[in-house]
Design a protein around this nucleic acid. Structure first.
Lengths: 214, 214
DNA sequence: CTCCTTGGATAAGAGCACTATCCAAACACG
DNA sequence: CGTGTTTGGATAGTGCTCTTATCCAAGGAG
């Protein structure tokens, strides 16, 4: 298939496909001659994956390249590859460690992990971007005068833990192999919009149940 | 307090504060004379709120203005004000209703709501941006060949429902009044990063438990 | 009186995701 | 054949957003 057909079947303009090729999100097609290149189903699939990440997952193009780079890196073990891909996801800006609110949030989050018995997360704490993101968010709440402590966070954390269990169960229904990582990464990226949407829908439902539409 | 002090206490540069003033995110200070204006604690609070929305909540500045506009709109009832603010949050792009994947996703999501007995959400379906976001995300999965059906979504939805119950319980611990809406909106916006971070942390924890670190 | 600071207006910059324009090579078709 | 369209690659430009820089006249501090 040539570029024009790839464009038609994916619904992405040729100009944008060229852009993705330049950015290294898509491998170049098999060059037939100076002015023609041939693309295959794998390109189409990859292109749809990129689109899903960009449009639904709201990932910046540079991040997509980084994530796909980890997914494709054959030199790494599977778990590491997945982890590396997930850690490459965009995060909130670096916290200012001098800030008193940030320090308080640090302690709060550490206490939360202890209370939950998340030993592994506790060990990864200084490294994990998710940990830092949590600290930043908790600090933002505190700065505004709302106390989010381990006590309030714990029930949310329990629910998220059960969500993560679902995620991994889900992943294990797929046969191991190269595309399992792709599925896992895709899951991690596209699950979040799904969860967010479900969360907002649930909020609407529960608000209506409690207070009606009035 | 003058602009320079507002800047110092909030950690936001004077240039950026001026920008927010221009954009109408911050009410102008009390004008003392031609070259001096006086700001108070309320300005500082609002500025921190704006910063939290922009930096932690990742809201575009235009959305922040819109959301705050709804929060401040005294002419509306409280529930409506909250709803309007939440519906102003950024969503995924409009789905292409012609697309077969989108149509299939529509049916899947409708089936899900029926199965869950979310009558209110079902009624709001055509209006709610969250519903549309869900449809888009599910369609993206299907386009890549992964079937996300009502069956797989239901357990996630249950967990999100319980999260929403926590949200509202949490909100009700705050005394009713003007700032309760601010708290609710803030909660809706800043909760999401918190949930996302907890979710990722939980994934890391569970992955490590199942597969170890390497 | 002098020098620094203030707030407002305007312009400038940087980053991102695309999009439009050219171009020469190559194929399609009457 | 030849003529007109299509191809992929290179380059530059667009529109948007958030933020910063530059000017400016008026005020205030020492």
């Amino acid at each position: 298939m040539r570029l024009a057909e790839l464009s038609r079947r994916s619904g992405v303009s040729t100009a944008t496909i060229k852009y993705y090729l330049r950015e290294g999100l898509l491998r170049p097609g098999r060059q037939i001659n100076a002015t023609t290149a041939e693309y295959d189903e794998e390109h189409l699939r990859r292109l749809r994956l990129v689109r899903a990440m960009v449009q639904v997952g709201q990932l910046p193009v540079a991040k997509v390249r980084e994530v796909l780079g980890h997914v494709d890196d054959e030199s790494l073990g599977r778990t590491i590859r997945l982890g590396a891909a997930l850690w490459a996801l965009p995060q909130v800006p670096e916290p200012d460690e001098e800030d008193a609110y940030v320090q308080a949030a640090h302690e709060e989050v550490a206490a939360l992990l202890d209370r939950l018995g998340w030993e592994n997360a506790r060990q990864l704490a200084t490294l994990s971007p998710a940990y830092r993101s949590l600290v930043v968010a908790v600090a933002a709440f505190r700065r505004l005068g709302y106390g989010w402590g381990a006590e309030q966070l714990a029930p949310y954390a329990e629910l998220m833990y059960r969500t993560a269990v679902l995620d991994l169960d889900n992943m294990e229904t797929h046969p191991p192999g190269a595309e399992r990582i792709e599925f896992a990464v895709l899951g991690a990226i596209l699950n979040e919009p799904v969860l967010r949407a479900l969360h907002r829908l649930a909020q609407e439902e529960e608000t209506a149940r409690r207070y009606g539409f009035e």
